[in-house]
């Protein structure tokens, strides 16, 4: 019994050593949508802290990542059909887990309830939304939450248009994660955050037939999401040091050993 235990421990050690050292030899194609300031359009290839942190973390595990800027719907279709293809910073959707493998959390995301500044409505919990006209970004976890709470809502076809629609009075409350788009819209109609509706994560998801060795290496690479200590200089270069520190402090995904 002891011999078998030692043998298992030895095999596990050998496996870990192999995962740490050997390059996988199989580059992966990682698609990501523009999401300023985390993912920016950099000519033909994407840029920004998400992209640079991921490339660095994957390379440290011996995985070469070819980064591509692709709209999310197309990226999803490609990742579902092509082995070795992944999507970075994807929202989790249970219904896609049979066609995509969600490997690891990369970053946190918050969905807020926004209203026009000075709006007199009262929001202290998600159930309060039932009393108002609600517009919401198209996100499976949010959809599930709203359905469970019995909140009727108008799903947004284009997430970036939500703030303008709220400003135009199409609904009373906008449920959205989008910071930059709202900041732009604020110049037209000032909005304010009223309630955190959902705390969720952004994920790396890959085609289910991606090599098990690559999968294991990417899982190791993302133990702390895109916020490992080694990525601090990247966040700093982009002027996002405070955000990096805050995520390190508050996000459970970044506090894994």
């Amino acid at each position: 019994m002891r011999a078998a235990t030692y043998l298992r421990a030895l095999l596990a050690l050998m496996c870990c050593a192999l995962l740490q050292a050997a390059p996988s030899g199989e580059p992966v194609t990682v698609m990501v949508e523009s999401y300023p300031p985390f993912v920016n359009e950099g000519g033909t290839a994407p840029a920004g802290p998400y992209v640079q942190a991921f490339t660095q973390l994957a390379a440290a595990q011996g995985v070469a990542a070819r980064m591509q800027l692709v709209p999310i719907r197309r990226a999803l279709l490609m990742a579902e059909k092509s082995p070795g293809h992944c999507v970075l910073a994807l929202n989790y959707a249970a219904e896609t887990t049979e066609v995509l493998l969600y490997l690891g959390r990369v970053a946190p995301m918050y969905v807020w309830a926004y209203a026009k500044r000075g709006w007199s409505g009262r929001l202290t919990r998600v159930g309060d939304l039932k009393r108002y006209r609600v517009g919401a970004i198209n996100m499976a976890e949010l959809r599930l939450l709203l359905e469970q709470e019995g909140v009727a809502y108008e799903p947004l076809q284009i997430s970036g248009k939500g703030a303008q629609m709220l400003a135009a009075g199409r609904f009373d409350v906008l449920l959205s994660d989008i910071g930059p788009a709202l900041e732009t819209a604020n110049s037209v109609a000032p909005l304010e955050r009223r309630l955190v509706v959902l705390r969720a994560d952004r994920w790396l998801a890959c085609h289910p037939k991606t090599s098990p060795l690559v999968v294991a290496k990417l899982r190791l690479a993302l133990r702390e999401g895109l916020f490992a200590e080694s990525t601090e200089p990247i966040w700093s270069r982009h002027g996002l040091s405070d955000y990096y520190q805050q995520v390190r402090r508050e996000w459970p995904g970044a506090t894994k050993p």
């Binding site: 095999l11 596990a12 496996c15 995962l19 049979e98 493998l101 289910p208 037939k209 991606t210 098990p212 060795l213 999968v215 294991a216």
Partner: peptide, 11 residues
Amino acid sequence: TEQALLPAMVQ
């Protein structure tokens, strides 16, 4: 084969 290296999905 170690558990970590099993294929993640078999359809």
